[in-house]
Design a protein around this nucleic acid. Sequence first.
DNA 1: CTGAAAGCGCTAACAG
DNA 2: CTGTTAGCGCTTTCAG
Lengths: 365, 365
Amino acid sequence: MAPPPPRRRDVTVSDVAKHARVSKATAARALGDYGAVSDTVRDRVQAAAEALGYRPNELARSMNTGKSNTIGVIVGDIENPYFGLAMRGISDAAKEEGFDVILVNTSEDVDAEIDAVRVLLDKRVDGLIVAPASSGETGHLRDVYNSGRPLVLLDRRVDGLDVDVIEADMASVAFEATRHLVDVGHRRIGFISTLDVKGPYHDGLDLRVSSVADRLQGVLGAQQEAGIPDPGSLVRFADGSAGIRPVARELLALPDAPTAIIASDSLIALAVLGTLQELGLRVPDDVSFVMFDDFEWTTLTTPPLTVISQPIYDMGVAAGKTVIARVQSRAVPERRAFQATLVQRESVAPPRASAGGAIEALSAS
Amino acid sequence: MAPPPPRRRDVTVSDVAKHARVSKATAARALGDYGAVSDTVRDRVQAAAEALGYRPNELARSMNTGKSNTIGVIVGDIENPYFGLAMRGISDAAKEEGFDVILVNTSEDVDAEIDAVRVLLDKRVDGLIVAPASSGETGHLRDVYNSGRPLVLLDRRVDGLDVDVIEADMASVAFEATRHLVDVGHRRIGFISTLDVKGPYHDGLDLRVSSVADRLQGVLGAQQEAGIPDPGSLVRFADGSAGIRPVARELLALPDAPTAIIASDSLIALAVLGTLQELGLRVPDDVSFVMFDDFEWTTLTTPPLTVISQPIYDMGVAAGKTVIARVQSRAVPERRAFQATLVQRESVAPPRASAGGAIEALSAS
DNA sequence: CTGAAAGCGCTAACAG
DNA sequence: CTGTTAGCGCTTTCAG
């Protein structure tokens, strides 16, 4: 389809200098807009550059300035609207400061993440924003730190790593949401998330993703406070998004199935809702439902969904501004605490009077 | 929060060479894995590199090889799930070939796009994937071509630019969808898209985004074939996503309001559906609805939505593979035609018997 | 197989 | 203000 590309040699400063009959250094100064150049010469050089179609080689420039004006962003899943929106924020912030963004998707794989960090460091990005897949392996993150380049963590903390973190307060809002469920009468509350942990959930299990751990802490805490025994028994982790539906089914088939479910993000919510639909279970009549993240579609389902909203775009912007501020060793923008809020709509109702599980409830109706 | 970073000088080939007591050239050969080096020396060099914590400077490497192993991707809106998913495909394809991706978001602004192309070219990306905001200004795209670097267009053609294009056949599926609406009895079919055109739609208006033009061509064509007069009168373009709701309201308030609406993408669909909900109009009883793109939430609304599905992820992969194949001047992967399909669910029904507009229908019920 | 030397395109002293 | 001379870190002749 496309004919063989011409690929002619690029025009360099040297070419422009020759054409404008000045030294390479002078041409470079005029072109790079540094140092001092007389107006006449500057004009002459720029005319020559224009005529020859000169374009600076940013690689060469970066090589001796040591700055690439590029930040790296490493996320687990760009397809996840959470990261899509955050990315938009980062990207907008970067553009405003004249930075570009290299995006790497790790599919939530730690090895891929380790690799990504290495590659981006080798490419000499000026700073890095990472949503770490695990707080277990963190050597690569320390490498960033040791390289002297700023690192900002997004959505997830890593204990013992003293860097900027952009996150919303998940524990308290999760507590609030669960408390809401308890208040209307639920005593069997399921929590579903994705996480690569082996075996069923148990007390003291190391979750390795702080944003999930925080959510869970709030969920469990509210139930403990309400005197609900063993709330951990209705917690489930799926390994990858393909695993969510089976897990949801299993949970709902329990003799003591939950009367309410909390989905840890929008991708999980979609799968859980789909499962509910397949099973013919209605929200909130058969099962109450709360999910994290407030995307527009959540208002269009029947019923509209009760959600936990976080300022994702703003967090992206903050992450972008923060790395760049660090890169330029300027003061970091005020550390606003990002607040998540419970948005009550109509997917929460008191549990049915019957004591049976969700599936039994079905046959009863 | 983060203590002042150390920022020590990077370890270079030269350092490693010294440590291993070989010449810089030999060390470079061992490290860069090219040329010929004896096993003993290679081991010695690698040990030294390890000991010193050597990391190659990819910028320097790119400078003299002329290849950066990076491709640039320019899209209008990464927040749009269409591009999120496509990006995932591109990213996966790139990773497989050992390439990185620099992503630039233009907010569908042509000037930003022109700028982005320039910057990425200056950064010496090896190839570019662009979803052009307009087929009007294309000088910057020709610049890419002239730079000798491969360019692949995603989702949108640009006439007269003979490069690879990854797109699905929108015209025929749009025809099919519209035909379906006509078949069940609709004669007033609205079409809403986002596009920065001044004034109302009229015949021969230059749409400048081929994927939208194709959709519209199918929509109009099916109606013309059915003998529906002046189908263009129910076509609306909003300038930016903020404008969609007003436009939808205006359309629905018409004395001859449409009995069916086609939304040109998922973001538009969300806004239209939201408007319908606000107005208390039910789908499909009051208004039938068809939208482009099949995301999971479309099955969770009441009713599930009839949609047009395209293989977005695969198209992203194809775009990625294609640029990279061109970069390596290998044969381009087979030019599979990407097929979009109409997925019939439950948002289409015959129009109400009453002849009035949608809003009147409301008061009648 | 290994070393010396040149050079990628640009910036950065340092003289004049 | 302008030119000369060095590099940045790596690859790449070209000898040996």
